[in-house]
């Protein structure tokens, strides 16, 4: 079983985000980074599948030099090796998936896992595009993965609490939903071992021009004015309860 996990490095949750001076992305000065949340679940699923079926887990990340920190983190959790597609640009999903497909074509993967959505761009499609470029079948928003020789049975989350099981042949691409497993932490031993694991650095071909160009990044305009209570907690709480009782009449 050769399983590839696509991980994206994204700004840490609760980062304070400001548009960059260029207006084309966010100001990256002083930002910390982490592995995109559903990608961490995808990695965990890959590690559990390897424990069951044997084989190899390879993580791939397209990003600038700092992306190697996230690859190392995945290696420390137990991935066998990494592929770093080195690029400084903010790419669209077709550009990213093209670079990932080029880097993965010779790996002859059995299964490729991605997260269902990135925290920063939030397009929710890179995995499906990658599948299309590699001509693999795909399924999305996956909550359970079972493998029987060369067939895959997955549980897809539908809306309003519905689910559906789907079978398809390997190799395939799945986009993983958060919460399908319990994340592990890297052990000290894992961190130590990660230092000697291989990270292959790939220089991608220049991407084709984007057909979805980000022209401007900006703070959303506030449309609805909530009544906000500030000041010390006690005063704010008292004011809120007054409003709920006498204005909204919900207490």
């Amino acid at each position: 079983m050769k399983i590839i996990v696509a991980i994206k490095q994204v700004p840490q949750r609760d980062s304070s985000l400001r548009p960059a001076a260029s207006g084309l992305w966010v100001d990256e000065a002083n930002l910390g980074y982490e592995i995109n949340e559903p990608d961490a679940y995808a990695l965990e699923e890959a590690l559990q599948l390897r424990e069951k079926h044997g084989g190899e887990v390879i993580v791939v990340c397209a990003g600038p030099e700092r992306a190697q920190q996230s690859i190392r983190e995945a290696l420390a959790k137990g991935a066998d090796r990494g592929i770093h597609v080195e690029t400084d640009a903010v790419l669209d999903t077709l550009q990213t998936a093209t670079m990932l497909a080029d880097a993965l074509r010779d790996e002859t993967a059995d299964l490729i896992l991605t997260g269902l959505q990135s925290d920063d761009l939030g397009y929710g499609q890179t995995g499906v595009v990658l599948a299309e470029l590699l001509d693999f079948p795909s399924s999305t928003i996956i909550m359970q993965v079972e493998i029987d020789v060369d067939t895959l049975r997955v549980r897809r989350e539908l809306e309003d609490g519905w689910f559906q099981n789907i079978e398809m042949p390997l190799p395939a691409v799945l986009t993983i939903q958060s919460g399908l497993n319990k994340l592990r932490y890297a052990t000290l031993m894992g961190i130590k071992k990660a230092k000697s694991k291989e990270i292959r650095v790939v220089q991608p071909a220049a991407p084709a021009a984007s057909t979805a160009v980000i022209e401007k990044v900006y703070a959303p305009q506030k449309s609805k004015q909530a009544q906000i209570f500030t000041g010390d907690a006690k005063t704010a709480a008292t004011q809120l309860v007054e409003k709920l009782k006498f204005e909204a009449r919900v207490l």
């Binding site: 985000l17 925290d119 057909t211 979805a212 160009v213 900006y218």
Partner: peptide, 16 residues
């Protein structure tokens, strides 16, 4: 489109 789960917005031009 929204970026960062609604914390920022972006204008995206469909070109070509």
């Amino acid at each position: 489109r929204q970026l960062f789960q609604g914390k920022l917005n972006s204008d995206v031009r469909a070109t070509g």
